[in-house]
Amino acid sequence: MHSFGYRANALLTFAVTALAFICAIASFSDKFSNQNPSAEIQILNINRFKKQSHGNDEVSLTLDIAADLQSLFTWNTKQIFVFVAAEYETPKNSLNQVSLWDAIIPVKENAKFRIQISNKYRFIDQGHNLRGKEFNLTLHWHVMPKTGKMFADKIVMSGYSLPDAYR
């Protein structure tokens, strides 16, 4: 600590180490937050349901998505990525996931929302298994903290089904 350079170096080292501790504490404090997210999705209309010329089923539908993810926001949350996926089983694949809609929620105020929207991304099956198919709509979210580990969770809503015939 005898010279200017040594003191500056020691200060920088100690300050950055302490900063790492502060970030670790901030990340750790997230574990004590109460999380009770809720979501509800309704299918308002099947707009289109057809077999494409090369044989894959395609569905267009209008969704009513209502969710309250405000409890996921803590002081250490940067943003939340949320998406709705249709999940179903086919003889070939035990789990098919098709993303229908997504959004990035940057602030807590926007985390409670309700929108009515037709699917943002096309709902296409790899094949033609969708007639009369029972499927789940799952709301997935990825919480991106300012410091610490990113984590993901989901709410599965079941009991949706597609019509028995193309239209």
Binding site: M1, L11, L19, A26, T74, W75, N76
Partner: peptide
Amino acid sequence: LVEQLMQILLVISGVVAVVVGYATESF
């Protein structure tokens, strides 16, 4: 003295920062 001062001041400012930041919920 300078080494002790440096460590004490940084630890105090870190503790104050975490407490105030957590209390005001502002990173």
